[in-house]
């Protein structure tokens, strides 16, 4: 997937300073053996996975809706964005409801997590920007990578990922011909 991204230079240049990405308080979660971390500040709540309603025609990474306390929240599956397998959901799975700024608009979205790990302080840990080459993933989807306890923690670039979903959603219309 990374090979399909010629604009990696531009992507790195528009990224914020990686140091600022290492949140003092980060929520970490596991997906297909990888560990992701997001700013705990943006997390509204973490809920057990309710029945997910499939949205026909929507991009695979964002093809579900759930009811969180009377609000209808779209569910994002980061595994699709990162080219991972979509293992069936088990009891460890959670939905992390986050509120994030997207093009200046507060957007509520549920991130699917195979397992929520902990809230950690990532400040002061070795951090590096996403390598432009040699990754399995689109490099602009990764804001930075933090080294913690001999593990890599991926800080996903949610605005970029979500924006790409948006485009994908509009392009993929249900097969109605």
């Amino acid at each position: 997937m990374s090979s399909a991204q010629p604009a990696s230079d531009q992507a790195t240049s528009t990224l914020p300073d990686p140091a600022s990405m290492a949140f003092a308080s980060a929520l970490t979660f596991a997906m297909e053996g990888e560990i992701f971390a997001i700013d705990a500040q943006s997390v509204r709540e973490i809920v057990e996975v309710p029945p997910i309603t499939a949205v026909p025609g929507a991009t695979a990474a964002l093809d579900g809706l759930v009811n969180v306390r009377g609000r209808i929240v779209p569910v994002a599956d980061l595994r699709v964005a990162f080219g991972m397998d979509r293992a069936p959901l088990d009891d460890d799975c959670r939905i992390i409801v986050i509120e994030t700024d997207l093009d200046g608009e507060a957007t509520t979205i549920g991130l699917l997590a195979e397992k929520v790990l902990d809230v950690a302080n990532l400040e002061g840990l070795p951090i590096e920007p996403a390598p432009a080459l040699g990754m399995r993933w689109r490099s602009d989807f990764v804001a930075a990578i933090v080294h913690r306890d001999a593990q890599f923690v991926i800080l996903p670039s949610l605005p970029v990922i979500l924006s790409s979903f948006q485009g994908g959603a509009a392009a993929a219309s249900p097969n109605l011909a």
Binding site: V55, A58, L62, L65, P74, I109, L162, Q166, A169
Partner: peptide, 15 residues
């Protein structure tokens, strides 16, 4: 949401 409003086939959702 903005992610799905472009689909056109659906005018909204309900609980």
């Amino acid at each position: 949401s903005r992610f799905h409003s472009g689909l056109g086939v659906f005018s909204g959702a309900t609980i």
